[in-house]
Design a protein around this nucleic acid. Structure first.
Lengths: 344, 344
DNA sequence: GTGAAAGCGCTAACAT
DNA sequence: ATGTTAGCGCTTTCAC
């Protein structure tokens, strides 16, 4: 690449102006400094013509702000986080900010490293969906006053704003739907038990049962992470029970896929043999056979809100914000739920 | 946030050393400058203790390199690009580089803006999966000597290294598989006709037919973008033909989903009524009913190779590289293809 | 209405 | 083995 590229100073020289003047025009402060209309035009045109692109490193160094947000997520290849990332990037760009994305690969170690990196790049703020197992690094970063907001998997111990969808309500909604179809033996295949999102969903599931006068049966809780294999294994175990469930609630989209695979292998049909509802509404959910009844999270809203909170946080003069925003979730009814078929 | 945070200079002062010494230690050049073991330890410990994080803006400004790669893709919520992004980020980080991700949202206008932004941040190199419709902005950026590599959707007009999977071979493989099962009326639902990837796939499809002595029938080519709705509409039209195809080849995963939905609505079963093969092997492809036969692209390899080429490009002293690397594609046989059932 | 000068935080000659 | 100095490219007070 060109060792010496065009910059403010060279442009100024070639125009017989001072760098200050050029800078004032280029950063849109011509008005404020009463630069004459003539020079302004001249500068703008010359900049355009020469293809000048101002150096944001120098600008950031001088201004002590980079107009950049950091986004750290556990796995960009998970469609949930991909959608989130998309919305964060979009919202940020609307406000003239760029986003540096980093993928912690579900590893707290990597997450720690990434956070240091973000700091060294002086991103103005951080949106983080933590891996969700440990949080000392988050607490200590936060305690320096770094603007940050947590999304999805949250740590109450970390005193920052947070956004997540209404996980308990979502699970409860699903249970209610199943109960309304006469189901009483409703099993649940959970995700990562350590993560707040999962814990809340399990809680909602249990509350839903209790509210319907059904005693939650620990034997009907399977799973242990968000992989499809867990869904598969979980479904096998549950359906092999002496008294198998008539309905399944999976707490993540890959779990649903795994469970469906298992059911197919066992020759059980959805919904005639077992009903199924899953958390996460993916594009494929309505296109497969049968179309799945799901609990849809407000993906766009989640990202948008995270960015909004982050900007409020960045604008804050002193003191730390710590509100927690819970976004409503929606039950999308399709064809994977039917009335219980009572055998005998 | 702290207006004045710890930096090299303050650390140096508090240690009674010069900033240079601290800098040398912290950037791992202690050895080269023969800093004594004692001071090195002292500096490292103090840095650790004080939580110093060196300012990469200043460093980048001084060094004229940012250890950052830019990644521009059309849609991060598309699983294909999400996987690509993941691998690019991973490969970059292995070499000590971060990546700034930007999503052009399938808009060339946005892409142009994003590119300027990347430039202004002085990313050391650019991996770009172009929207694929226009490319003057790419050519002109490239002509300034900016290190960049194109992935997936390529412009031969832009003189940069490129990586893509073997699209023609993939489509041909699919056709051969169908022909081997006795199919001769094989329809194709394509994606964005402007994009190089799609054009090559269509070419492979046609070559596959010709090689089997089948005259490609333009009436059997449907689709027009990568959305599931196109797959749905395409399947409806094709299956409504007087002489409907016995097999479908969809050129993208969402197209397959849409086609499957249409087939279900029409009461046609896969594979007994129609066989189906699709480009892109997504996690759900093996979990749904029936498990889909697919053409799998080497996602990891694509990202890895792009980064590798980019680094070669960045290391290059003079002159522009322009190799094109084509990565092999794989036919994954599952259960969506069966022998033709010849009616009557 | 515009320019000169200082400084953001870092590194690399060039001194010792 | 370490310090001094200059400068990366920008913005902004202060000057005129």
């Amino acid at each position: 690449m060109d060792a010496s590229r065009q910059n403010l100073k060279t442009l100024a020289e070639s125009l017989g102006l001072s760098p200050s003047t050029v800078s004032r025009v280029l950063s849109g402060n011509g008005e404020r400094y009463r630069i004459s209309e003539a020079t302004r035009k001249r500068v703008l045109e010359a900049a355009e013509a020469s293809g000048l692109v101002v150096n944001q490193l120098a600008r950031g160094l001088r201004l002590q702000t980079t107009f950049t947000l950091g986004l750290v997520i556990p796995d960009i290849s998970n469609p949930f986080f991909a959608s989130l990332a998309r919305q964060v990037e979009r919202s940020a760009r609307q406000r003239g900010f760029s986003v540096v994305l980093a993928d912690s690969q579900e590893s707290t170690e990597v997450e720690i490293e990434l956070l240091r990196n973000m700091e060294s790049r002086r991103v103005d703020g951080l949106v983080i969906a933590p891996v969700g197992v440990r949080c000392e690094h988050l607490s200590s970063l936060r305690s320096t006053g770094y603007p940050m907001v947590q999304v999805d998997r949250l740590f109450d111990e970390v005193a920052s704003p947070m956004v997540c969808s209404d996980n308990p309500a979502g699970a409860k909604l699903a249970v209610e739907e199943l109960v309304a179809h006469g189901h009483r033996r409703i099993a649940c295949i959970q995700g990562l038990p350590e993560s707040s999102a999962n814990r809340e969903r399990v809680r909602g599931y249990q509350e839903g049962l209790s509210a319907a006068g059904i005693e939650p049966d620990p034997g009907l809780l399977a799973g242990g992470d968000y992989e499809s294999e867990s869904g598969r294994l979980g479904a096998f175990r549950l359906m092999g029970l002496d008294e198998p469930p008539t309905a399944l609630l999976t707490l993540g989209n890959m779990l649903a896929l795994g469970a469906m695979q298992a059911l197919r292998e066992m020759g059980r049909r959805i919904p005639s043999d077992v009903s199924l509802i899953t958390f996460d509404d993916q594009p494929w959910a309505e296109l497969i056979d049968p179309p799945l009844t799901t609990v849809a999270q407000p993906l766009e809203d989640l990202g948008e809100t995270a960015v909004k909170l982050l900007f409020e946080e960045m604008d804050r003069d002193e003191g730390v914000g710590m509100q927690r925003i819970t976004l409503p979730v929606e039950l999308v009814r399709r064809s994977s739920v039917s009335n219980v078929h009572v055998p005998n």
